[in-house]
Design a binder for these strands. Structure first.
Lengths: 358, 358
DNA sequence: CTGAAAGCGCTTACAG
DNA sequence: CTGAAAGCGCTTACAG
């Protein structure tokens, strides 16, 4: 509305300087450090910038300041798959809280053409939060090369890299022991697909939870190879849970309890069970992992293992911001606690009136 | 592992050029256009880059290419509040699908120090998807200044800006008429807080849904000012829904039906109703808006208005990418349909055995 | 097949 | 209080 004719292609600091009859330095100061200039000059420059419709180029600015003011979240899966699990939005709430407090922006960095390795050098960010990195195929080296700080969440981090994990093993152990203490013998385990589709290469998270299940079984003199124990592996989604139920339920002797490595799959199991007319927990007990908000609101409320998801995001972002401000900050490894939350989806199996005591 | 001593602070193209005895041009070509160089030179340069642990600077690259390969999603609320509604992750799945297909990254751009206006010039992105922009307080002008393409979703866009909206009015109208056709007379409406907390300035979305409710009421000779119609305004979250139920239920003549402007609040209402021992739909009918995945899985399944959330994200991203590639692309305004989905949370009110016919 | 040079749009000592 | 100049690390015509 204040422009006379169509504004030129792109207004730069030089044009303003020329128009205002001052140096580029002055123009820069007018916006970034007005105290360096006389009020009259500042007003003059700003008026011209306004008239020309000037908008500073953030890239050029970053070029000299060496800052983008963006935090990167490096993802092992594409954005659509990542967002399919409510875990992630919750995690981002934690990260986002720190972004808001520090005036930073949040960049989601999925694999580029299927490769995390390729994505790392391209992202214009000041640092990375690396989530769920499984077996390292050079990603850590690539991140070091980039010479930006990074923190690893739910992964197997080298000693010198800040990291956050939760006590997956302990939580999984408690979940399995809970089921066994109720007297269940025929148990289905719902494991999760590793994103690179190689069964042997478990995520540290998956490996830890599996180890916890094994420990819990061992406490009751059982092993995971017991014929009464069946394990299926599905994608970390509601659909994966539905599939898990279907596969477990059609066996000749279906489980009386299903132990799932994540709430989203447990919820899928619950949904499928109800659709099949299976009563939970009377005919089937279900226990999850994560404690998503929807777990407590399910019908019946889902017994699960709580982990501080949002807190992980916040902590990761705080550690990253600290590393950004202070190159020399000590890399610390956090191990956050998990807690079994017994709700309505687990109970004594129908065929056994009395729970087995520990 | 291939470096001899600690690598220097930051490896640049110049250092490699010097070390390799070639020009910077050659180094650039070795990575971006190897066909310009003899294979021997390429290998030589790459080997040195490898030894030095070179990682190209994405900012410097963007500086000359004028591309960041990042799509920005401009948010009216901070990231934590945005992620509190499952609507958003779903929307991002759509956007993310396009990012994956085009090799772009996704940047979440919340208000900077409380101001969208301030956030716009700083984000290092090639274009914006602007979601839920309410009354324009200069944001559109600021976006134009930036001279990057942008598309508006769920907002009131100028003619020359590409835009996507859904038929909120029609959907809301259908929802209200459904309730009235069942015979309900005492109705609670759950409206949503506008993010700038000025009741008069409705989001176009909120305004359109409200208009739809009014139209539906009018079809039955009713108005929103009818003493039997109560409206409460809460935040777009599950907690907001709980609050809405509490406020509506404590009135001397509580509603027999609650019509909510979003599923997340409707689910909160449902949760609170169940917690109070109120049977749905026998004692209280509930209808939502959005058709989140959890709506169908609620107990009872939520009657709601479907809108194509993921599709909106995909379409918005596609339009933005098109505008990025072709400056001259025609700005089109999409209006996507909505559809009432009658499920288990609505029914005939207890005090009336026969529904009123239309 | 290779190199010298200009340029992208800013910021920031440094000098006056 | 103000300006000339260097520099951030790349890419890209252009010339040879």
């Amino acid at each position: 509305m204040s422009t006379k004719r169509t504004v030129p292609r792109k207004v730069t600091i030089s044009q303003i300087a020329k128009e205002a009859g001052v140096s580029k330095t002055a123009v820069s100061f007018a916006f970034n450090d007005p105290s360096q200039l006389s009020p009259a000059t500042v007003n003059h420059i700003r008026a011209i910038a306004e008239r020309l419709g000037y908008s500073p180029d953030p890239i050029a600015r970053s070029m000299t300041t060496r800052r983008t003011n963006a935090l990167g979240v490096l993802l092992p899966l594409d954005i659509a798959a990542t967002m399919a699990n409510p875990f992630f939005p919750l995690f981002l709430r934690g990260v986002g809280a720190v972004c808001g407090a520090t005036g930073m922006t949040l960049m989601l960095v999925p694999p580029l053409w299927g490769s995390m390795l390729k994505a790392i050098p391209h992202a214009t960010v000041d640092g990375f939060i690396v989530v769920g990195l499984e077996i390292d195929r050079g990603e850590v080296q690539q991140l070091r090369r980039r010479r930006v700080p990074f923190v690893m969440v739910d992964g197997n981090a080298p000693e010198d890299i800040p990291a956050i994990n939760v006590d997956d093993r302990q939580g999984a152990r408690a979940a399995m022991m809970h089921i066994l203490s109720l007297g269940h013998r025929r148990i289905g385990i719902v494991s999760l697909e590793s994103w690179h589709h190689r069964y042997e290469d478990f995520t540290s998270t998956i490996a830890a939870r599996l180890a916890g299940y094994r420990e819990g079984l061992a406490e009751y003199g059982r092993t995971i190879d017991d014929p009464d124990i069946q394990m299926v592996t599905v994608s970390t989604s509601r659909a994966g849970g539905v599939e898990a139920f279907t596969r477990l339920w059609r066996s000749e002797s279906p489980p009386t309890a299903i132990v799932a490595m994540s709430d989203i799959t447990a919820l899928g199991v619950l949904e499928a069970a109800k659709a099949h007319g299976v009563r939970v927990p009377d005919q089937l007990s279900i226990v999850g992992f994560d404690d998503l908000p929807e777990a407590a609101n399910a019908a019946p409320p889902l017994t699960t293992v709580h982990q501080p998801i949002e807190e992980k995001g916040r902590l990761a972002a705080e550690m990253l911001v600290a590393a950004l401000d202070d190159e020399e900050s000590e890399p610390v490894h956090h191990l956050l606690p998990t807690e079994l939350l017994v709700r309505g989806s687990t109970g004594v199996p129908v065929w056994s009136a009395q729970p087995v005591s520990t």
